[in-house]
Nucleic acid binder design. Structure first.
Lengths: 371, 371
DNA sequence: CGGATAGTGTGCAACGTTGTAGAGCCCGAC
DNA sequence: GTCGGGCTCTACAACGTTGCACACTATCCG
């Protein structure tokens, strides 16, 4: 049925192997031969059979990106960025949705589909440090996020504590004294919630503000709805608030909704800042200030690390790296940072960096518990 | 290196083919043999090599979903739904981003990657009816959207005209008389913009309202920014408006932003409705009314059609079908449809259906030009 | 002028799986 | 007792490609 190299070879009057050589850019081929083969390919509409090539080369040219859900804008934008970065490097991305369930996250690491691709870029949301063992795999793995530190794998993460602290200090610098936090996970000692909460507390301390537990709003899932509920709860309880730091933008947009419902003016009465800097942030009413954790850089770095790892398959124990992109506090209307006509303003920058991790260690900083 | 069937066979003391049979659920195997093979598989941690299987069976178990961009929430949610539906049916989805460029859309139809997957679910945004020839392909193809009618392929589309008309009539039923439209594509006779504009005009006509060209706001790309710009332009021009129908939710959210910037109250002064019913709509301020075009049903149907086509490969010319899911007008705060405490209300339903397309025809209705 | 080297092309044997065909065996029916 | 058929398992030959080794020519160097 389909056209194979054999057909092309026949038509061009060369061997199959020569066709293969042409297709793969082998240099030692006479221009005229190459020409003949290429014409034959065009005439016949030949395409290489990827399955056969993959079988022979033990490579698929695919990498898996495992995220909780594409309908969460942060992950949709991350996926977009990863796909584009992979594309530029000549790779194809296969997306796996885990719904943040332990079962599906475990399956991603070792399940049936694992073998379809050459490597895995994984943003876990259910698995945590107790599951470190699961992350010891013998294929190229790049971990995203802040739930798992110290696995024997490359890791791209965020400047969580520093950025959250900067966001909190920024609210304080606006003269706000009652800074609420939305999205806390009580008792959790790991993950974005814990790290950003740490940064929040450090920020309060540095600004000389007291820590009032009434200002901590829980929200298990970081959706708009839960953000709205947490904010409403706090307002209904009569907690006095003049600023809100939401641990991600979805929560922030939900909180904004609740503030509006309570007829509270943002930013005059309450200043609001989110985290992630998703596209939505720019267009909410008012436009949302946020922390840009360096998403594009995260995506590009993850792909680079992955491609490098795949290329070095065999040189077993190249040292693992942890990369943290620069993050920035983006001021918009919801913190009153922008002058009329201005879209946004970079209020602060937290520098990242690359760290070589000799083996499985916790990083100095991000492992701090929330106390 | 990797464990193969051969290793498993050896350990279990059976032939390779028996291992294959066990793995593939062939029924005529003694329980004890099966048991032995399964233990061997577990002991050795064997996984089938997909490349080899794919080569042999001429199937990859993958389908491509080609969309413009994942960072557009509508497509992110569509991708989520398609991936989930495919998952349930045992298939894996590979996402291709076209950036709505002609070049990339053409490449999706016939490019290098084409051969990685068994079929293509394609939502074109750049190619149109003039490119019908490109859509004549000999692999399973399901087309999404409203730019290409009459291609020899299954097609899942929306109730565009009917739904847009219903949305317009709904605004009219609220007593609005100056209903603006945001997102028009001047001169275009095909695609969502044209169809929804047709519905808008039909709605105006049925409500007995005059058609005022000043109320038509152009927006080439349907992003929040362009929606905001189109709305601002109209307001700055002093056009009198008491309702807005935005051709998608991104435009609507942008328009909402502009209305707010002009200190216009929604819905009291201007009622607003969007199209797509993306997740955002529920959480904007005020919550956005929208047209739900039946996204989940679209995704499920697309996957069903695809799987069926792939299964029937060979029976060449099974008739092509066009499927239109039911759509619904969802009333929320931005049209003042919800009572206090109520989240949303289904205001109207437009019934869809399935149509068998014997060959390449235009549908009776959706091909109407915008006049 | 001999031997090394660069350039150009080919044949063979995998890669790991499954489709096809069929070999035994046991059982019940005639 | 033999024949048909269901059950259980196996051998063999692909699927379409690329790695490896090698053959042959032309050129270059000393």
């Amino acid at each position: 049925m389909a056209v194979t190299m054999h057909d092309v070879a026949q038509r061009a009057g060369v061997s199959i192997k020569t066709v293969s050589n042409v297709v793969n850019g082998y240099p030692y081929i006479r221009a005229e031969t190459r020409q003949r083969v290429e014409s034959a390919i065009d005439d016949l509409g030949y395409r290489v059979n990827m399955s056969a090539r993959n079988l022979r080369t033990r490579r698929t040219g695919l990498i898996t990106l495992a995220v909780p859900e594409l309908s969460l804008p942060y992950f949709a934008e991350l996926a977009d960025a990863v796909i584009s970065a992979a594309d530029d490097a000549g790779w194809t991305v296969l997306i796996e949705q885990t719904s943040a369930s332990r079962e599906r996250e475990t399956e991603v690491l070792s399940g049936r589909r694992r073998h379809l691709t050459d490597g895995l870029i994984f943003s876990p949301l259910a698995l945590g440090p107790d599951d470190l063992g699961l992350f010891t795999v013998e294929y190229p793995l790049v971990i995203l996020g802040e739930r798992v530190f110290g696995a024997p794998a490359d890791h791209v993460t965020m400047n969580n504590v520093a950025a959250a602290k900067a966001a909190t200090l920024h609210l304080a610098s606006l003269g706000r004294r009652r800074i609420a936090l939305i999205g806390a996970h009580a008792g959790e000692q790991v993950g974005s919630a814990a790290l950003r909460t740490t940064g929040y507390l450090e920020g309060l301390a540095e600004a000389g503000l007291p820590h009032d537990p009434a200002l901590i709003g829980e929200a298990g899932l970081w959706h708009r709805s839960t953000g709205a509920e947490a904010m409403s709860r706090m307002l209904d309880d009569g907690v006095e608030v003049d600023a809100v730091f939401a641990l991600n933008d979805a929560l922030a947009l939900g909180a904004l909704h609740a503030l509006h419902a309570h007829r509270i003016d943002v930013p005059r009465e309450v200043a609001l800042i989110g985290f992630d800097d998703v596209d939505d942030a720019k267009y909410s009413v008012p436009a949302l200030s946020s922390v840009d954790p360096g998403r594009d850089q995260i995506a590009r770095t993850a792909v680079d690390l992955m491609v490098e790892r795949i290329g070095a398959a065999g040189d077993d124990q190249a040292p693992f790296r942890r990369v943290v992109p620069d993050s920035r506090i983006i001021g918009r209307e919801s913190t009153g940072d922008v002058a009329p006509g201005e879209r946004e303003r970079v209020v602060a920058v937290q520098e990242g960096g690359t760290e070589v991790v000799a083996s499985a260690w916790p990083p100095a900083r991000d492992r701090q518990n929330v106390t």
